[in-house]
């Protein structure tokens, strides 16, 4: 029996599954940040990244039976709120100047 099937037969779920889900989410968020041109979607991708990290923290907390990971998650949620507020304010600023939220429209600075 492959390890995957072996682990399926147990009742509880192994740590690595949670980590795999978190890494897939992180990859999705990274792809969003790198490829999407809409600043709002980029900000949402950053939120996906933070959620993926939170999932790993909680999985590791459960693994170590130690609540430090919960505390970090708590702080990450607060930081995400702060980042979202500033990020959205910046999107409004960009929109005021360019009438567009497209990252490609930001051409005042030479690349």
């Amino acid at each position: 029996m492959t390890p995957l099937l072996a682990s399926m037969s147990q009742t509880a779920i192994p740590l690595s599954w949670y980590l795999a889900v978190a890494l897939i989410l992180f990859a999705i968020g990274t792809i969003g940040v790198l490829t999407r041109r809409n600043a709002l979607v980029v900000l949402m991708s950053v939120e996906i990244l933070l959620n993926a990290v939170n999932l790993t923290f909680l999985a590791f907390a459960r693994h170590h039976d130690n609540m430090d990971g919960h505390v970090v998650t708590f702080f990450v949620i607060a930081v995400a709120a702060a980042e979202a507020a500033v990020g959205l304010a910046l999107v409004l600023g960009i929109f005021r100047h360019n009438r567009s939220v497209n990252v490609d429209s930001m051409t005042a600075l030479r690349n």
Binding site: V33, L50, V86, V91, G93, M106
Partner: peptide, 15 residues
Amino acid sequence: ESAMKYFILGSFASA
């Protein structure tokens, strides 16, 4: 624009 660029890459780095 410089703030926006810094913000996007900076929050990615934070993640």
